[in-house]
Design a protein around this nucleic acid. Structure first.
Length: 426
DNA sequence: TCTGGGGTCCTAGGACCC
DNA sequence: TCTGGGGTCCTAGGACCC
């Protein structure tokens, strides 16, 4: 059976989530900020039209914000995460095979549907997601993931498509590719695009007509796959269990202000490690290797210092306490006085699950297991809210390193106190 | 004053092994 | 004087994605 893949992607996802619960934002130039209210990571078309680029630092548009020209929101991941799972739930009604690719997009397997119905199914998906979640999406349909991505690009880029493009027909594929800049192709970033342009390859169409072997020799095996996908040969497989099958878990943050004290840095690392281990347990995994890292502010004209250190344990564990014991001695090794640290992180690497685990010859432990204490901690935090129970070393009071989130919207869907109240006006 | 966080895959080069 | 061939593992760095 010929593969048919739909890529469903929410438009300006974070902004759209904000608009669902605050309709005064509809039609307004709106941006959502990164952690720490640092820079703009999501923009509505109205904001893009003002020439505000992705990643613009918030301070550069402060005047516009104060004059009411634009609106900004702090990122509200509790809200976006919940809206995302609602979106995915709707998609699952259309196919048993849905690959959640990121918070705002998913591949949906439509193999087996008659070719003349694909456009209509795409329109149904779009309509139902809009009606049930309030999120506007684009749907691109084709025979490989890369072509589906391209179809989705067309759905968003050309309003006349109504947000749904069936690109299963090779003639239409060529027509679209010949008018699409090469850097719009999934897998072609800025760097590669520049090198391609030097070779005279400026459109997706030109790239699709390259010989895969030549691309491999001149660029990489990765770009060769992209070319094959553009030619209709599927090379990027379905990932069945993407979310639960991570190879590493990173928890890192930039600080609201520079941190100099050892104790503050230590508290931050403890807090990140605690969060990382929580994620690890959610996935039912264990880790034997981790890494701590500390960084100064690369944007400041001040002495720079970056350091990281690997930590390891004799056997894999998901017990937060085991990792916490290693953090203080580890930080003592890499900490240098006199620097203003701007970022720190804790990273679990080389994750494994219970099966296929190589036991230590001298350890009585046969299989890694979830300590009862951690199960209780997780259960309490699930029931009474995040960080109800946390390591004392993470700090009991507000620390200077906490994030700035001055423009945060309410957690409309995940917190009872923030649920909207509806009443008759007076 | 003010610039995110979390991932993946691939390659090259060095160390080391027999 | 003469000094192979084949392999693994690890790490750093580059490129990409959202």
């Amino acid at each position: 059976m010929k593969p048919v893949i739909a890529l469903c992607d929410a438009n300006s996802f974070y902004c759209s989530c904000e608009r669902v619960f605050d309709p005064t934002l509809i039609g307004r130039p709106l941006g959502v900020l990164s952690n720490n209210d640092g820079c703009i990571v999501a923009r509505t078309p109205e904001l893009k039209a003002l020439g505000v680029a992705m990643g613009t630092p918030a301070f550069k548009v402060r005047d516009w914000l104060e004059q009411g020209v634009i609106d900004l929101r702090s990122s509200n991941y509790a809200l976006y995460g919940d809206m995302s799972s609602r979106f995915m739930t709707v998609l699952e009604q259309f196919s048993p095979k849905v690959e959640v690719y990121s918070i705002d997009e998913a591949f949906v397997d439509l193999a087996g549907f008659p070719a003349d119905q694909l456009q209509g199914i795409g329109a149904d998906i779009k309509q139902r997601v809009q009606q049930w979640t309030g999120l506007p999406i684009g749907v691109g349909i084709s025979t490989t993931k890369t072509l589906a991505k391209l179809a989705n690009y067309a759905a968003k880029h050309y309003p006349a498509t109504g947000g749904v493009v069936d690109l299963t027909d090779p003639v239409r594929q060529q027509r679209l590719m010949d008018i699409t800049p090469v850097q719009e192709v999934w897998g072609v970033g800025n760097r590669i695009a520049k090198r391609l342009e030097q070779q005279g390859i400026r459109t997706a169409g030109a790239l699709s007509r390259c010989k895969p072997a030549w691309i491999r020799k001149t660029f990489s095996i990765v770009l060769e796959r992209t070319v094959c996908e553009l030619q209709g040969e599927s090379c990027i497989p379905w990932e069945e269990e993407t979310t639960g099958n991570k190879h590493q878990i990173i928890c890192s943050r930039s600080f609201g202000q520079a941190v100099t004290a050892f104790d503050d840095l230590h508290a931050a690392l403890v807090s990140f490690a605690s969060r990382a281990c929580e994620k690890l347990r959610t996935q039912g995994k264990f880790a034997r290797e981790a890494m701590i890292l500390i960084r100064t502010d690369p944007f400041r004209d001040a002495p720079q210092y970056n350091a990281n250190l690997s930590l390891s344990l004799p056997e894999p564990t998901c017990d937060t306490r085991r990792w916490l014991q290693l953090i203080r001695p580890g930080l003592e090794k890499i900490y240098r006085e006199g620097f203003g640290y701007r970022k720190a992180g804790f990273m679990l690497v080389d994750l494994c699950d219970g099966a296929g685990f190589q036991a230590d010859l001298w350890s009585a432990q046969v299989l890694p297991e979830m300590p009862a204490m951690m199960q209780v901690v997780d259960a309490i935090n699930r029931r009474y809210g995040k960080r109800t129970l946390k390591p004392a070393a993470a700090g009991l009071t507000e620390r200077p390193w906490h994030m700035a989130r001055k423009l945060l919207s309410p957690r409309y869907t995940t917190c009872w106190e923030d649920v909207m109240k509806v009443g008759a006006g007076r």
